[in-house]
Design a binder for these strands. Structure first.
Lengths: 341, 341
DNA sequence: TGAAGGCTCTGCAACGATGCAGACATCATG
DNA sequence: CATGATGTCTGCATCGTTGCAGAGCCTTCA
């Protein structure tokens, strides 16, 4: 049960612990004869280094933590995959955790008994943690934030340009000639500002086109889930003058909206065009494939990991603001059947 | 930068290191006066225990690893969420990793320099690792397998009854009066036997109904992804005598199939009824909501974690075979519009 | 009054690994 | 032959924590 230690191997091979360590790590020069003898003992005892001990001695674990609100939200799952890949390229492994969108759980992470000390760094996609709470903790392990901005310029931060992205999505709908473009996903009172940035982009698009925003077409949702998208869409359809297009603040909302539209017998995009955000894989395969804003997830993950690792190395302590690229992908939900998957 | 240690706090409060440790852990009795003094020092220096050191001393980390082929496959993401929740209930945290369905990466996990020694146990959803490879490693940290059986009865293992589940899904289609029921997802040559079990259930259903299996309607796919489901469906539709129902070995295949059917102008379920497996959330919101076999993911996660922790405690060393419950959920893809979401 | 017991508090050793300084043998060099 | 350089190998200290055994001191009770 108990693992084999360097001591066991040393005893077996009749050498010092240090020499075994040298063989294992290939550090100091060891004669071929001795190396062979030690190797035999290593194999016979099936030695595996105790990484905890190694970590203690070296002061680092080679692990970073990725904390997202919900792992089964496709966007976060896809992002997690990219972060894992990016970290692996640097020899790091990633521990993924979810907060269930619970602010207390986010705070727990920063608290005294947090397991966070096990990690060399933290990539956090925050939901409700405030800047002050984060600053309290700032002198601990390095943190990189994803998505939410949280106050201005105190932490390294990676995100797309939400205003521009939302503006482009809305403009795309306006360019199709739609004049009653709804928005689903506003969160005027939330801590996070992502939704507000997107609303701002939505307004900008109207302003630049010289059009009025129809305030009654802006729908607030507490979360970005399918069900809420469907419900918001139903409310929009019940309006005396329903929209002819919808910009949803993420793909799940959009897929929920599509579901509601289909059930209501509306044709997409003829009656109502739909745009989402995130470019989750699911959107490509929905019955009406989904036009969306695709953030470059791989790039987001790479930049986040790079920044974090630099901060861990102490190569740079400065907090940086990184804007990752995004692009509009047009599919059937705005372009009709004439577009491939 | 360097963390505050017990030593620092001890010096500051003019007490022994051991006493500080006692205060932190609330172990031995400490007078109120001293406790207060130490607490002040703890707060002033913002002490956080070094978990790595604690782990080394205690021989456990309080972390388990969950390894799945792909994190952005909804089933695994949803399962990961449940495992995280189940582990948290026992005070454990979960590190999630993905192997990209790459056998080498799975093997790497079991190899000499694996980070696996950092964990108290491992929940593994294997893809191509063999029984022998696993046994080699068996005397290391405890392992619980999910899904794939891998040889018989040497490791604790949690899964649904795949044969019964597939039989029920197929029977449901036959009961609707369908007589050309296709199967998408067979993997006759794969290491894993899950697909084979499902094919076996599919055949059983036909046998029990006294019907012949149409061999040309069994489609093999290398993976369980949407695209492959769509492609398989297209091939089925190209047959001289296409199917009037499809049983897909997971929901992603089914959603791909639905997509292909819709593009081909077939009505669901009137022309072709579709059943999937896994009950991923996405299936509830597809334009035609998806009838599926729902494995009890929460139960799978709970049983897997419970079994693993027992094995870690040494409470039981025996390997157990756990069959988790499942049920058929009928939605529009087989029942038409008369069923709610 | 003195032994026994309880309450606080402390020092030492250990978990398993690595950094460092040096011991010892061998060899080349002047 | 003495000296220094080189190549191997080793022991000690250390990372930050906790387990263990015990040291003082104070109370209690015969």
């Amino acid at each position: 049960m108990a693992g084999t230690t360097l001591r066991d191997v040393a005893k077996r091979a009749n050498v010092s612990i240090r020499t075994v360590s040298n063989v294992v790590n290939g550090y100091a020069p060891v004669s071929d004869e001795l190396r062979a003898r030690v190797q035999v003992a290593l194999d016979e005892l099936d030695y595996r280094p105790n990484l905890i001990a190694r970590n203690l001695k070296q002061g680092r674990t080679g692990m970073i933590a990725l904390v997202v609100p919900e792992l089964d939200v496709p966007y976060f799952a896809e992002l997690a995959r990219e972060v894992i890949t990016a970290a692996r390229a640097h020899g790091y492994v990633v521990m993924v955790d979810q907060t269930d969108g619970d602010g207390d759980r986010e705070r727990e992470l920063l608290g005294r008994d947090s397991r966070a000390t096990m990690f060399d760094g933290l990539v956090l996609s925050p939901l409700s943690v405030t800047a002050d709470e984060l600053r309290e903790r700032a002198n601990r392990i390095p943190i990189v934030l994803l998505g939410e901005h949280i106050y201005h310029g105190n932490f390294s931060h990676v995100a797309i340009d939400n205003v521009a992205a939302a503006r482009e999505a809305t403009t795309h709908l306006l360019d199709l000639g739609r004049r009653r473009v709804a928005a689903i996903g506003d969160q005027p009172y939330a801590t996070g500002e992502t939704a507000q940035l997107r609303t701002s982009g939505y307004r900008q698009a109207h302003a630049r086109a010289g059009l009025e925003v129809h305030e009654e077409l802006i729908m607030t949702t507490s979360h970005f889930h399918r069900r809420l998208g469907a419900e918001a869409m139903e409310r929009l359809l019940a309006l005396p003058d329903p929209p002819d297009a919808v910009f949803c603040y993420n793909d799940l909302l959009a897929l929920g909206a599509i579901r509601a539209l289909t059930r209501a017998g509306r044709r997409i995009p003829e009656d109502v065009a739909v745009v989402g955000m995130d470019d989750i894989e699911e959107g490509q395969y929905s019955t009406v494939s989904l036009t969306t804003i695709a953030p470059d997830k791989a790039e987001i993950a790479r930049r986040a990991v790079d920044t974090l690792l630099k901060s861990i190395d102490g190569t740079t302590g400065a907090s940086t603001e990184i804007v990752a690229p995004h692009r509009l992908i047009v599919r059937e939900s705005t372009a009709g059947e004439n577009v491939g998957t």
